[in-house]
Design a protein around this nucleic acid. Structure first.
Length: 502
RNA sequence: GCGGGCGUAGCUCAAUGGCUAGAGCGUCAGCCUUCCAAGCUGAAUGUUAGGGGUUCGAGUCCCCUCGCCCGCUCCA
């Protein structure tokens, strides 16, 4: 089972490179871990996904406006957001068995009676007391009895691995091997602003687009005449120095987010949270991700980040496992409060009608563009059977992308490269192209071959000019998924396709 | 970050330490073709991931680096 799943991923990666959807970044230099490029077809696909999102959450609503904030911001932003301080947990590794632990959870426990060591060991635990119990419980029955009977005479030395006393070595909870000193993993990319590189010039590539929205919240409010409830939407790059990029483009170090921060009255936060959670889930279904592979998972209370009152993940069953596409969170007034505190600027909202002043709550639907793109690609990859020119059934690879996302909407062919067919086909192609639909013209080789090429590109419609066209100005239009061919007037191609695209 | 596997043409893969590194598909040029890739002819394309070493001789053996996959770990 897992073999065939990896198989699917391999085939998809291969197709994406072969057809120009996705390339490894700087491949000619051996690539670079965690960075990817979108080729000619891929960039169209990704742009279409972003455009559809923007259309649906900004253009077709009057309560959400857009924003394009800078990637590098005043570093104080990341102090306020908590990314500089509590950005990561120090970790320790066992030099023997290579296990890794959070430094504040790995305890070393030593028990001695006078000079004699009675028991020692490591334990993964939340508190000293628990660690002591774990180590004691692991000792032999004889020693356990001695600990109970002579409790007064025993000295316990217990320390966390990130608070190891001078001259002591922290012990691995699993194998009692020695642990490395705690190491900090800061996932933010650092850079310097200005030519002088000193500590005062340090800045960060944003690890999320959200903070740009919070920092501009007051500007948007003052310039747009919007009233709560309203939202600000943004699509943009973000950067995280992931320890271990994995799974193709799923976890990249440079990636793109599409986020909304929706500001509302605290009393309405729950309602808006549910609205956005359900709306965002439905959006993926509407664009072709089958509901059986999608899951909406509400976070348990103990799973919530400290600033969130509620959170749900939209998850998709990728070939490599169930993974998050988008998170919808009720972030309360945490972010605006923090920025108010750190900036010293008043970020409260005054409601003219109720005469009430408050810091709005924020509902955040935050999606990964690259993750969505990958999910749509995985979902689209299909192998089915189609007859060849001798009627033999052959495997056909077809990308069943949602027409709204397809990089090419219409391909136009002359059935054969003679008898004036190319000229007619070329005319139809130019008409469709100039009307703003992504179109493609091809006259090379057998027509079946051209159809199959478009199948791999995910093109929903192929228009073919044949002998009959020259007599009655009709063409055939072939459906990617059903292979059905319909004969329509040549000058109705544009109308036909637009109607089908919705 | 750890362990394992892998890296040969655009893609999928061959090649006992030994001749000029091959095949299929794809691509390109042309022919043929009146509807679903495998008809014909011809062509281009490789620092065998990169670097170093062993050897008379390395795609093949050794070391380092980079990248990909799997498992652990991690994922505000």
């Amino acid at each position: 089972m897992s073999e065939s799943k990896n198989d699917l991923m391999d085939k998809l990666v291969s197709l994406c490179k072969r057809r120009g959807f996705i390339f490894q970044s700087s491949e000619i230099y051996g690539g670079i871990n965690g960075f990817w490029d979108y080729g000619p077809l891929g960039v169209e696909l990704k742009r279409n996904i972003k455009a559809a999102w923007w259309e649906d959450v900004v253009r077709r609503r009057d309560d959400i406006v857009g924003l394009d904030a800078s990637i590098i911001m005043n570093p104080r932003v990341w102090e306020a957001s908590g990314h500089v301080g509590g950005f990561s947990d120090p970790m320790v590794d066992c030099t023997e068995c290579k296990a890794r632990f959070r430094a504040d959870r790995a305890f070393t426990v030593l028990a001695a009676a006078g000079e004699t060591e009675i028991v020692s060991g490591g334990a993964e635990a939340e508190t000293e007391a628990v660690a002591r119990e774990v180590v004691a419980a692991g000792a032999s029955s004889k020693i356990r009895r001695r600990i109970e009977q002579k409790a007064d005479e025993i000295t316990w030395t217990i320390f966390r691995s990130d608070q190891t006393p001078e001259g002591k070595t922290a012990m691995c909870p699993t194998c009692r091997g020695s642990l490395t000193p705690p190491r900090l993993f800061n996932l933010m990319f650092e850079t310097h602003v200005g030519a002088m590189q000193d500590s005062t010039s340090v800045a960060y590539l944003r690890p999320e687009t959200a903070q740009g929205i919070f920092a501009d919240y007051k500007n948007v409010l003052d310039s747009s005449r919007l009233k709560v409830p309203f939202g600000i939407a943004q699509i943009g790059k973000a950067f995280r120095n992931e320890i271990n990029p994995r799974n193709y483009t799923f976890r990249s170090r440079e990636f793109e987010q599409m986020e909304i921060e929706f500001f509302c009255h605290p009393s309405e936060a729950d309602t808006w949270y549910e609205h956005w959670r359900d709306a965002r889930f439905q959006w993926y279904i509407d664009h072709g991700l089958t509901s059986s592979k999608l899951r909406l998972r509400d976070h348990e209370k103990d799973e919530l980040a400290h600033y969130a009152a509620a959170c749900a993940d939209v998850e998709y069953e990728f070939p490599f496992g169930l993974s998050e596409l988008e998170g919808i969170a009720n972030r309360t007034d945490y972010d605006l409060s923090r920025h108010q505190e750190y900036s010293g600027k008043d970020l409260t909202y005054f409601d003219d009608e109720t005469k009430e002043r408050f810091i709005p709550y924020v509902i955040e639907p935050s999606g990964g563009v690259d993750r969505a793109t990958l999910a749509f690609l995985c979902e689209a990859y299909t192998e089915d059977e189609a007859p060849d020119d001798k009627g033999q059934m052959k495997t056909r690879v077809v990308m069943k992308l949602h027409p709204r996302f397809a990089p090419i909407k219409v391909a136009v062919f002359p059935l054969v490269k003679k008898e004036g067919m190319p000229e007619v086909a070329r005319g139809i192609y130019e008409q469709v192209r100039d009307a703003g639909l992504a179109a493609f013209y091809d006259e090379k080789g057998a027509v079946g071959r051209r159809y199959r090429r478009q199948d791999e590109a995910g093109t929903p419609f192929c228009v073919t000019v044949d002998g009959q066209t020259l007599e009655d100005q009709t063409v055939t239009i072939r459906d990617r998924d059903t292979l059905d061919q319909t004969r329509i007037k040549a000058d109705e191609v544009l109308t036909f396709v637009r109607e089908k695209l919705g």
